[in-house]
Design a binder for these strands. Structure first.
Lengths: 277, 277
DNA sequence: CTCAATTTGTTCGTATGTATG
DNA sequence: ACATACATACGAACAAATTGA
């Protein structure tokens, strides 16, 4: 069995020990929960592997600069999550890894997006036919006359993983209200022969859960979410589809190929060109 | 001056009132701070505009299902941030919007990435010449014989916004240790004539700040960050550059054009093809 | 101007949670 | 396990400022 050195020996953050109080103060999460989240991260990242004996309470006290009881509270959290097991006289051992779902892959081009959304299981929808228009920034297109608001939640094995809030131009919606309500609007739009999408872009940020999102995704208020804003504009530059999607952070990953349409890349020539520009 | 209706009238979350205790319990952040983050969001999103009178304490008590003093603590937080001003007898008013930094745009192709990184101001670097190799997943290339570990922090107006942890293949590093330490490694790699990048990909997730990252970005332990993993493989499929970048969430945004290399898009034909496939 | 209604500000007591030594 | 200190949260009562009838 591998006995690990104290983490501090590896990453040398002894110099920051004096500032530790300030670090804990920057977050209003209780210290033991902060300690727990660091230890959870170490298990998830593999720095502590399943079966390993982790540092002793004494080492952890010194490393985190907090009292023994506080460390124990953190360990208790992880025991309840099934990640740690403590044994008197022996030590504390890693007994499992957190579920890292990361199975959701966000599309980076239109084709992929449509086909991935098409397969989504939408379990719940709420429609407001008389909706206020969406907030639109400059460069995002013109507003349509009327919008319909559709909210749906996507589930994976009965676990909610995203909330989709869509403002759909009413003239699009009315072509087939029934289907727009119960299947993915974007897939349907892409099938309309007389609608040409001239702009489609997506902006991704980190946001916080508002009460509705928190409730639907079973999150705490203010917990972080991956927020995706998706806008489609038609041939008249009218924003016919404006979506705000909130993803559960633990299922979210975005993978991009940086050489997508470029092929292998060697150094000098292009960059020199750029430099001189 | 606009007097707003209670938010609850608009978004109808009265039905969830019974579950409110559960919602607060899902996070270990104090309730007043959770309330504050919801109100902050309302100001940021423009639901409450500057100058507006927000709901009264009594309304907010009922809406959030918490005590008056708790609401006041939340308001007090936002007063200290300069977002709200309260006046006895009159009400509480929005006095400012949060700084929405979002000025950082993550690149989605190699050229853009290199030229944006080239302009970054790196203010601090830490180098470990005898570094353990990076963790590599399948499909990310083969490991080089040796790596050098370089950590740098990027600043904007003396505010740190990202921590870059790079494992750089030693044979690359040794071509010019001095420059690799003090300027952006990736920009230099792209100038090497005899190195061809055959794979370059980027994976973005939401992570939590570990002690080092928290200290360098002045975050609380366990606060959310945007984590970007960036890997470059050379002509021999060796991962010569493996970066783990932690961005401060408030400066992070990723914008993608979904029609990047496709041009305008009309419905049927392509999709029918896909369907029959 | 006064009065009443509205709205924020303050204080008390109590209970529980967090953190230390 | 205990004693101590401080933060969080509740409910209730009361005080002070503002507004409009």
């Amino acid at each position: 069995m591998l006995i690990l050195l104290a983490y501090s020996a590896y990453l040398s953050y002894i110099p920051m020990m004096r500032k530790i109080a300030a670090m804990y103060d920057r977050s209003r999460v209780p210290i033991y929960a902060q300690v727990a989240s660091v230890m959870r991260q170490r298990i998830e990242s593999g720095f502590w592997s399943v079966g390993d004996k982790i540092s002793t309470l004494e080492e952890l006290e010194k490393e985190f600069g907090v009292a023994r009881v506080t460390i124990r509270q953190g360990i208790e959290m992880l025991r309840e999550e099934g990640l740690l097991e403590a044994q008197q006289g022996r030590g504390t051992f890693v007994s499992g890894r957190p579920k890292h779902d990361r199975w959701l892959n966000i599309a980076t081009d239109f084709e992929t997006m449509v086909s991935s959304i098409r397969e989504n299981v939408v379990r719940r929808a709420h429609v407001e036919e008389n909706s206020s228009p969406p907030e639109i920034g400059q460069g995002e297109g013109k507003l349509a006359d009327n919008y319909v608001f559709i909210r749906s939640v996507q589930y994976n094995k009965s676990e909610p993983f995203s909330v989709v809030n869509v403002h759909l131009a009413r003239h699009i919606y009315e072509r087939d209200p029934e289907r727009f309500t119960h299947s993915a609007a974007i897939a349907m739009i892409s099938e309309l022969e007389d609608v040409t999408i001239t702009h489609a872009h997506q902006t991704l940020t980190i946001g916080v859960a508002d009460p509705e999102t928190a409730e639907l995704l079973k999150l705490g208020l203010g917990e972080p979410t991956a927020d995706c804003r998706l806008i489609l504009a038609d041939q008249n530059d009218v924003a016919i589809y404006v979506a705000n999607i909130h993803y559960h952070k633990s299922c979210f990953a975005l993978r991009m190929d940086l050489l997508q349409n470029a092929g292998p890349r060697t150094g000098r020539p292009i960059l020199l060109q750029k430099k001189s520009a």
